[in-house]
Every structure is written in structure tokens, then in C-alpha cells.
Amino acid sequence: MTPASPRPFDGPTLLDGAMGTALLAGGLPAGTLPEAWVLERPEAVAAVHAAHAAAGAEVVLTCTFNAAGPRLDPLVPPDRVGALCAAAVRLARRAAPGARVAGDLGPTALYGPGRPPPDGAAVRARYARAAGALAAAGADLLWAESQWDLAEARLALDAARATGLPVVVTFALREAAGRLAAPDGTPAEELLEAVADAGAAAAGVNCVPPGPALAALAAWAARRLAVRFVAKPSPGLPGEVLGPDAFAEALRPAVHAGLGVAGGCCGAGPGHLAALRRLLAAARAG
């Protein structure tokens, strides 16, 4: 077992909400990468961070979800990724001065069902470039999210840990028969144990429904997972978004089962975070 990174969470912690859907609501053209506004409209990105922090978020993720993926290359050439990451960290730090800044690393999209796996060394190099830039810019920790392929998650984790910062890994999974699993059927529990064994400082899920499957996973993690379990479930996409109170109520069983590090993914705004903050505070007091 690889020694874990330093523990990033010592108690109940409120994470931030969604960046991409917030920017879309603010006028980001469909199909445009959010990172474009780090460069072109930084005030819009800063406003999202500030709103999340005002709602109580103690950790904010930088607007760098695509920093390791080739889809960013037409917008930001590889030799300019460092400048993008530095700008994103500065925005988050200035907009949310009381929060910890997590350097966000989404999947590369180079892995896919039925496709031959890409060159692992090249994928790791992409993560290493982005993770190194985020660390050099002053991020407090690194956050590899929306992973779904274990091989890629391991590469992201390995590259991010090389910076010396704590690394959180979360998986975007599907719900079937009351359980969360990857598209290839790998159960969430197996994925979380694998990255915990590989040195993740915390592990969890994001962009999953806030329902019974998440509560069951939180209960399992409280008993079995060697690192802190984190979750950023989604209240839904535009047109089908749960309201803040309904979102918190749907998360109540997971919080009672032991979930103490939580935020919101797609569709989650300041209202959702405020409701979740109240839920976490009540659980802490109880």
C-alpha cells in the first residue's frame, strides 16, 4: 500500500458548487470551454467563486477542469497551460480568500468504452503538466474529479501526488440496481479502495444523484474506507434541478450515514450550498 498524502479534511467540510453550469447561466456560449472565460472574462469566474464562498464553501475548485485534456489544446497551447493554471488559482484565491483552493483536473476523454487504451505515459504527462502548474501557482491541494476509468484515475493520482500536495480523487458514476458503478460495471467501492491504496488523501464521487445509492456508499465508506469520503452530487441539469431544500433533504440520509465532506456538482448554486451547510451544521451539533 502506498502511503497516503497529508489529510486535507479533519472535520465536516463544505465544498463548492458548480462552475460550468453557473457560467452557462451567465452567458457562456454552449460548447465553449469554461477556461476561455478565465482568460476573457475573469470577473465572471471570480463571481462564481465569491458566491460559493459567501454561501459557506470552505474549498473552491479552480476553473481548470479541462487543463489535462486535448480538447483544451486549440484554446490554450500546451506551453501556455501554466499561465492558464496560474490565472485560475489567482482568481480563486482572490475571490474566496478564506477558502482552500483545490486545483481541478477533469478527465482527458482519451479513455472510452470499446476503444484501445491510449499511451499511458502520454496521459500521465498531460496530468503532470497541469498538476505541476497548479501546484506552482499556489494551490493548496489537487482534485482529480469526474474520473470513471480506474487506469486513468491512477495516472492522474500518480502525477498529482508527485507535486507533494494532497490529492483528492472522485468518480462520476452511474446508478443501477441501487448501487453506484463505473460504465464497465466496476463497483464504486472497488474504485475508492483502489485510489485510497494508491495514496489519495480522500476519495469519493461527484455528479451522482443525491439518493439512496449515495447514502449506502457513505455508510460503507464510514466503515471501510481508509481515507475521508467526499461527495459532490448533482441536483440536476437545467430544467430538472432540485431546489436547495429538496437537494439537502435528499442528501440527509448520506450525511447521517457519515458523509461530512460535501458540496454540489452540475446545477448546484449558492442556495444549494447554503442548505447543505445548514444540514452539515445540524449533523455536527447532533
Rank of each mutant, 00 (worst) to 15 (best):
V208M: 07
L214E: 03
E152R: 11
A177C: 05
D184L: 05
E240T: 11
D16V: 04
V205E: 09
W143F: 15
A246W: 02
A83P: 00
A246I: 00
P117D: 14
A160P: 06
R129I: 08
G185Q: 10
L142G: 01
W37Y: 14
L180D: 14
R284A: 15
S234M: 07
R126M: 14
A135D: 06
A201V: 01
R252A: 14
G82L: 06
A281G: 08
P253R: 10
V89L: 07
V241I: 15
A216M: 00
G132C: 04
P117T: 05
A151W: 01
L155C: 09
A202T: 01
G69E: 08
A55W: 09
A53F: 02
P70M: 05
G103E: 00
L259N: 04
D119A: 15
R80M: 05
A222Q: 13
A218G: 05
A87S: 14
P116N: 00
A200L: 09
G204V: 10
T21W: 04
P253W: 12
E190N: 00
A87N: 06
C85K: 11
A153C: 03
V208Y: 07
P244Y: 07
G286N: 09
A137H: 13
V123C: 04
R252W: 01
R154N: 01
H52C: 12
L280K: 02
L280C: 07
A285T: 10
A55T: 13
A194Y: 00
H256F: 00
P3H: 02
P42Y: 11
H256Y: 02
V45W: 13
L72T: 09
R94K: 05
Y111T: 01
G199D: 02
V169G: 01
L242M: 13
T64N: 10
R228M: 01
A268C: 06
G26P: 11
A88R: 09
P233T: 14
N206R: 07
L280M: 10
A109E: 12
R100A: 13
W37I: 10
T186C: 06
R71S: 14
A181Q: 12
L276T: 12
D79T: 02
F247K: 01
L61C: 12
P210Y: 11
A135P: 05
E58P: 14
L251D: 09
G103D: 03
L276Y: 06
S234D: 14
A53T: 08
L28H: 13
S5M: 11
L217F: 07
V60W: 06
A30W: 11
H272M: 09
D197Y: 00
R174W: 07
H52V: 06
P238N: 13
P12F: 00
G204A: 13
A176C: 04
P118G: 11
L91M: 04
A246E: 13
G264N: 11
